[in-house]
Every structure is written in C-alpha cells, then in structure tokens.
Design a protein around this nucleic acid. Structure first.
Lengths: 115, 115
DNA sequence: TAGTCTCATCGACAGCCATCAATGTGCAGG
DNA sequence: CCTGCACATTGATGGCTGTCGATGAGACTA
C-alpha cells in the first residue's frame, strides 16, 4: 500500500460545485465533504497545514518541534490531511516533503458561499 | 442559562484576520478556529446548515424529517452549530427559528486563503 | 553488511462524540 | 389549572480519535 492515498475522495471535485448557501446538500455530498472539514477541525492539523502552506513545502522532521508533538502523532496528522486531499507528500531520499493542494482549499471556499 | 450562547468564540473575529496560507497560525488562533471547523465536520450538521441557509430561516421541527434524525439529535446539532457561531436561534412562541451568521462563513473563507 | 536516520505502523489508553429513549421545561389554548 | 405541543436536557451506549511508546520498513553511508 503506497503512501499516496485519498481514494474515496476523488469524486469530491465532481460533487459540490454549488455553495452551501444556495441549495441543501445531498446526503452523499455531505458524506464526502464532512471528512475534509473534519480534517481541519483539529488545532494541531490547522497549524500543521499553515506551516506547510507558509513554507511552500516542508519536511516531516521540521514539523515535530514547532508543533510540540511526537513523531508518530505528526505522522498520524499528515496522514489525515493527505487522506482529505488537503496536502500531498513526496518522498525524497529519507525525507518526506509535504505540499498543500490549493484546489481543495478553493473548493472549500466555494462551498462556504464564496463568489 | 439562555439558549443563545457562543461565549468563548467571541474573540474569534478579532483573531485570524490573515489567511492560513500566509503565515503559520499561533496555537491560540488554532485553538479558537478548530472547533468552528470541527462543527462543520459532520455530515448531519453540514446538511442542517445548508437547510438553514437555503431556507433563510427554518424551524427546528422542520429539520427532523429531512435529516432523518431524532428530535434530541437535532437539538444537539443545532446547539453545536450555535456554539460555533455559525447559526443563531430565536424563540417565537413554541418554535425555535434558526438563521445563518454570514460573517462566520466569510471569516472561514478568508482563513482558507480567499482573496 | 552493519549502522543510522527518517518515517510508517501497531497496540494501548483516555477522552470525546453521535445517537436515542426517557424526562424535564416552557409556551399556548381551553 | 390542565392538556398538548415544541424544544432542551439527562443518562447510557457504542464508536471514533488524539496521543505516545515500541516496533517495523526503507534509504543512505561507511
């Protein structure tokens, strides 16, 4: 099983092209979107994502200290964000480099009623 | 204790005026913002919010059937969304009417890097 | 090949959460 | 008052989640 995942969320881009404020969400749309927002519903993951976004790309080993969490915990949170499609990881030698997926953030902005 | 709450989140509007993609979030900002996003991280609450937004305002008794949940569960979810500051409730006679708070959605859009 | 470094996974634990039946609270009409 | 209705709260339960120590899987170096 590879480190790159995010399987059941691939249909997310096709779903939900209209803002949440326009029409009621279907159960299917909600079931796909909720995990993405739930991934952002943790303070450690929010800070982690902002670190990745601010640095452009960042190695896992540079997250442990600023977040004040153990290595397994960091690995857990990067996995959750990756499964939500919010970040992607690329292996370079011994290091794992993470980058944000701007499209996913834009999709959430659209969901929240952006023009 | 009144039905209107959202106490610890009142400082939210002062905090976090810059997008998540610009600079790393402080632990305090993350601790305030994460519960708001966590409130959206549930499919039932996402659909509930979209129902409120689409109708403009809606009574609690009109949420039970379309969401397919029991009355206590609906009450629980409206409470969570209200504590997150995403909706507000107003009592009219026997009924409770809910409305969205557009500022909170706009704040989240800004957080997600919107222009 | 052995050693070391980075990261992923496993196992376990504590705490939180969604759900609903039962009950309580407040409002309106008779 | 008393009854009925809308909603809130309580208590219980099953499942999920954040956390970390221990261990495993790759990757580089000597």
């Amino acid at each position: 099983m590879p480190a790159r995942l995010a399987q059941p969320l691939d249909r997310l881009d096709e779903l939900c092209c209209s803002p949440l404020t326009d029409a009621p969400l279907s159960p299917t749309e909600a079931a796909v979107l909720a995990p993405v927002l739930a991934a952002l519903g943790d303070p450690v993951r929010l800070r982690l994502l902002s670190l990745v976004a601010a640095r452009g790309e960042i190695c896992s080993c540079h997250l442990e200290k600023p977040l004040g969490k153990s290595q397994p915990t960091i690995s857990h949170h990067t996995r959750v964000l990756a499964e939500a499609g919010l970040i992607v990881g690329e292996r370079r030698g011994k290091w794992m480099w993470w980058t944000v997926v701007p499209d996913r953030l834009a999709l959430l902005r659209r969901l929240l009623g952006g023009a």
